[in-house]
Design a protein around this nucleic acid. Sequence first.
DNA 1: GCTGAAACACATGATGC
DNA 2: GCATCATGTGTTTCAGC
Lengths: 149, 149
Amino acid sequence: MAERLDETDEQILAELADNARATFAEIGQRVNLSAPAVKRRVDRMLDSGVIRTFTTVVDRTALGWTTEAYVQVFCHGTIAPDQLRAAWQDIPEVVSAATVTGTADAMLHVLARDMRHLEEALERIRSSADIERSESIVVLSNIIERALS
Amino acid sequence: MAERLDETDEQILAELADNARATFAEIGQRVNLSAPAVKRRVDRMLDSGVIRTFTTVVDRTALGWTTEAYVQVFCHGTIAPDQLRAAWQDIPEVVSAATVTGTADAMLHVLARDMRHLEEALERIRSSADIERSESIVVLSNIIERALS
DNA sequence: GCTGAAACACATGATGC
DNA sequence: GCATCATGTGTTTCAGC
């Protein structure tokens, strides 16, 4: 769990963050390691949870997805994070989700084509878990957008 | 550029978002397509910019950044988005910022090493613009983390 | 904990439907 | 626009250091 990473691990992470579909041989060339050595390190980091997942950055604005909202969700009783993950991870409109402090149980970041689509996505979000109510804060304009890794 | 995606494209995107290192054959099996057919669609989406990049979600606890919050900011009077961008873009703890609907003027996503660091970052955020008050919602655990545009 | 080699699986272009 | 096939590459296991 509290795995410590050496300089090579950090380099490999940076390469994977830059291109998650890079081959192990390619990464190895950049960090001066053989492909099997890279694979073993990546496997170890996957195993220890340092690497959570490999994902794809989809530019929804290229598809005209211009509507964005932060949604606070209030559940009936207590729900385990794993349940919420199971409920929402197949909803592509959900960019991120987290359980939070305060009156709300979870905070979601949702992307949609337009208001109608957002409405419809919210309905799917609500119906896929035992949700009491939700509160949406719609984004007017993005000021800063940094990749987090 | 205003590329349209069919149902199969969406399915492929969902698979790639879930695991960017999945093989084309694997994806093809799930969407009932051959590997070359999947590749062609992925290539087209890469070409049109719909797929921006493949990346890796790193568990920031491994990097020592364990504290995360959504911060609603309330300004004195009206402030232009550009002013807020100028005020905050040099604060590295600010992962994203957007002006929003509702009672708050802006929503920030902030990352910090710990509570003390978050507190200190919030102080810098508040003092760099004409902020009346702010409301922080601290993340307990991340459920879904997809890199967004 | 690395390298090198070998078996196996995948990517990808050409071809035909 | 798809499937099939062939080949070059990448992956992954195993032995050895």
